[in-house]
Write a protein that binds this DNA or RNA. Structure first.
Lengths: 332, 332
DNA sequence: TTGAAAGCGCTAACAT
DNA sequence: ATGTTAGCGCTTTCAA
């Protein structure tokens, strides 16, 4: 039913191995032979079986791409870019959704391991130690997490968060809040630290969380924000920020009149929300591309010991829109 | 380096085939043997190779999932649901992005064919004839397209569009426009027909398009809408509708004061846009789940002739928000 | 430059 | 109930 290398060999009147070579090492064939084989293959509509090829070569030409939540608008542009990058290098992408659950994430790596050449963990929720263990079995690349010996691409949220806090400070805010994301998130830790270190003795910082990074959680936390007596808040991501703004609106708290809000990610939602959300732009698409590149580059060397884990840090920047303003009663 | 069925056989002191059976037909083994094997496998950390298994069985336990544009918020919930459904049945999902391009879509099916048991085409842009041809090589299931002999799940946009137009008619609108989507989109055809047939002699209908279904195109078409002298428009999807609203706003045309706008999909964006977008809710997650189910059900039978293509139609409904109102100068 | 043959990890008759 | 054997489609030594 399906055309195999044998059929092509017969059609082209050569041996199987010659057909194989026509595809994988064409230069080692006499041009006329190569053409004869390729012609025959074309006539029969032959395509090498990646499955069979994987069995002998040990390389599947597949990549696993595991994200915390496909429905979080932070991820789709990253997935899209990764898929395109992979395809450009003749790789296919398995996508899996870990539902923000470390256990599922771990299980997914195991389930995929045997049929991919490596996996990209995006915004992983599992512990470093476990990642280290997993990466002994299968090459792993990280997005938004940095670990020695493991290829990774991070977005420089430290810089972004610093700019965000400076922005609030300049506006005159002195009582800040950070609406935290998942405890296991590296980005969350980075932002949290930065908020504290930048605010230092120039402003107070209340931390609310951890929170599941979705609108609902943001909506819920609004109450606590309203009572915390803060005039500005930085949220772990746009989803939380937008949910928070809705919650605040619901409580009759004006944004940015009473409270300023800043998000992170600059998802499509940020521009659409009212007021339009001031947020930190992160290059998600670039991250997807880089992650695939780093992973492939890492796996390129068959000599395990010689493998070199590249690290890429991508710049971020604050985009000021309408959700930030001076605090109420400010002299300006 | 990696543990195979042979290692387990040795460890458990049985033959390879017994190990194989312990995993694929456990009931055909003496309980104590099965346990012995499973124990040994556990000790060694053995996992059957899906690749090798695929080579012998002809079933990869993988599904290809091809969408027009991952970054269009219409798709992520569908992908997520499909991935979960697939995993629940021990299948993995290849995701590929066709970039709204029929040629890429076709190529992707071919590229994936050899390593999946079937592919789901979501909102396909390729012609029916080509789909028919492809589905001779590889089982295909369709989302938002209906074809005899090919499993499919559609969303009943006809009903949704009818309700939408009736809604506009009731508000008093008599000059309508339809901002069309891609020419090759089945949904686009369905909606377009419905608009005409429902409006019939009760209102005029101007069609603008085809358009690439994104915000940009919507923004661009605003000018034509403003000049068309219509008081209400239905757009192919939320993206176009939202872009249109921005464009209109930019031209000083008030929504819904001067022009009412209705979208389709009820993506996350609809609630966020200002004015909040009246739109047609479509059950994308259900569609993803159903598509996987239909495909798997279709491929279940090894007897090609006996295969039965199921069809599912999912209900849609209009959700009225703030982007629709009576036309200007209406007597009410 | 090409052919022959072994083998990747597993399953599926066929034996026993 | 379990072992034997052949073979899935391909790549890769090794010969010629």
């Amino acid at each position: 039913m399906v055309v195999t290398i044998k059929d092509v060999a017969k059609e082209a009147q050569v041996h199987m191995s010659t057909v194989s070579r026509a595809f994988s090492m064409p230069h080692r064939l006499r041009p006329e032979t190569r053409i004869k084989v390729l012609e025959a293959a074309r006539r029969l509509g032959y395509r090498p079986s990646r499955v069979a090829r994987a069995l002998t070569t040990g390389r599947t030409h597949n990549i696993g791409f595991i994200v915390a939540d496909i429905a979080n608008p932070f991820f789709p542009p990253m997935i899209k870019a990764a898929e395109h990058a992979a395809r450009a290098r003749d790789y296919h992408l398995f996508i899996a959704d870990a539902s923000e659950d470390p256990a599922i994430e771990t299980e997914l790596v195991g389930a995929l391991a045997k049929q991919v050449d490596g996996v990209v963990l995006c915004a992983p929720r599992i512990a470093n130690a476990k990642i280290e263990r997993l990466s002994e079995d299968i090459p792993i690349a990280l997005v938004n997490r940095k670990m020695a010996g493991v290829p990774s691409v991070t977005m420089d949220v430290v810089q972004g968060a610093r700019t965000a806090i400076e922005h609030l400070l300049e506006l005159g805010h002195r009582r800040l809040a950070y609406v935290a994301g998942p405890r296991q998130s590296w980005t969350n830790t980075q932002i949290s630290r930065t908020v504290h270190s930048v605010a230092e003795d120039r402003a107070s910082v209340t931390v609310l969380g951890p929170n599941t990074p979705n609108e609902n959680a943001g909506f819920t936390v609004a109450d606590a924000i309203a009572r915390a007596g803060v005039t500005a808040v930085l949220a772990y991501n746009d989803l939380l920020a937008i949910g928070l703004m809705e919650g605040l609106h619901n409580l009759g708290v004006d944004v940015p009149g009473d409270v300023s809000v800043i998000g992170v990610d600059d998802t499509v939602l940020a521009r659409l929300a009212r007021p339009r959300l001031t947020t930190i732009v992160v290059p998600t698409a670039d991250a997807g591309t880089s992650a695939v590149d780093l992973l492939l580059q890492y796996t390129a060397s068959d000599d395990l010991a010689a493998r070199t884990a590249g690290h890429v840090s991508l710049p971020t920047q604050l985009v000021v829109r309408d959700s930030t303003a001076p605090p109420p009663n400010s002299a300006s």
